[in-house]
């Protein structure tokens, strides 16, 4: 276990080196969300209304979405695809580490680092938007919300790790990576709240586990989620299942890597 914490710390140092770039991409993210806030404001000013969301519900939704984007959503597949394609993955074959655990720790330190930065940014934004923010009324909501974030983080990593492993089988893994990531983004509710979707899309979104990444935690925060505990349990079960599934796929991938060589 100790070695994985070292991985965490080393990458934390590494992340600090990227504080400038990370800050800049955070600015881009802030820009995106601010524009959306103007969009909702324009719609509600024109007396339009989206589902049963009030304007402050929507503003809160997108501020939280921004936080989740940094703290929860994993982009590990970037590095995984690179390592497999360029052959640096071999370094992990000759060392006594489990690649899944290793990648998780790398991802974990990135997420904490980006999380610290995004919380500062959202803090500043919230200060200006305070009258438009929907805050939870029940104390246990916060507890459920944080639990949902943690589970969402595990699940997001698992999905993205799986996408990264595609590189064992596909030469064009990068293209698929983008599309799959975006499909997950979409069905996670990062673009629009899932309950605004047309009925067919809503049914699909309910069956898929991606809603646990974004939509589900935010619904808990907004206290619109009727079954938080059941949802958390389901997310945890997905996590456990995915863990064993990924270990299995990783073994198959390594077998292929050794056979083909890239």
């Amino acid at each position: 276990m100790r070695k994985y914490w070292t991985v965490f710390w080393v990458n934390w140092q590494n992340a600090l080196q990227y504080r400038g770039p990370t800050f800049i991409s955070l600015l881009g993210n802030v820009l995106r969300v601010v524009v959306l806030l103007y969009l909702w404001n324009a719609i509600y000013r024109g007396e339009g209304r989206l589902g049963d969301y009030s304007l402050s519900d929507l503003i809160t939704y997108y501020l939280l979405q921004m936080v989740i984007n940094s703290i929860v959503l994993s982009y590990s597949s970037w590095e995984i695809v690179d390592q497999i394609r360029e052959g640096t993955f071999s370094n992990f074959l000759v060392r006594p580490v489990n690649y899944l655990h290793y990648s998780f720790m790398i991802n974990f330190s990135w997420k904490l680092f980006e999380g610290a930065m995004v919380l500062a940014a959202v803090g500043v934004l919230s200060f200006f938007l305070l009258p438009y923010i929907t805050l939870p009324s029940r104390p246990e909501t916060i507890f459920f919300f944080i639990l949902a974030l943690i589970l969402g983080g595990f699940l997001s990593f698992a999905f993205d790790f799986a996408i990264g492993l595609l590189a064992f089988w596909l030469v064009q893994a990068n293209a698929f990576k983008y599309m799959l990531q975006y499909i997950i983004f979409f069905f996670a509710g990062a673009l629009l709240p899932l309950d605004l979707f047309p009925p067919l899309f809503q049914t699909v979104a309910k069956v898929l586990p991606f809603r646990y990444l974004v939509f589900f935690p935010i619904q808990i925060f907004l206290e619109k989620e009727p079954h938080p505990v059941e949802g958390l349990l389901a997310a945890a079960l997905w996590g456990i299942g995915l863990y064993f599934f990924l270990q299995f796929v990783l073994r198959r991938g390594i077998a292929r890597y050794e056979a083909v060589g890239q």
Partner: peptide, 22 residues
């Protein structure tokens, strides 16, 4: 790369009508 994510968001936010801003 990161600097150009700013440019990416810049062009990405161009698809909303200018009238939404105040």
């Amino acid at each position: 790369q990161e600097l150009n994510t700013v440019v990416y968001y810049f062009i990405d936010t161009a698809r909303y009508p200018r009238e939404i801003y105040r």
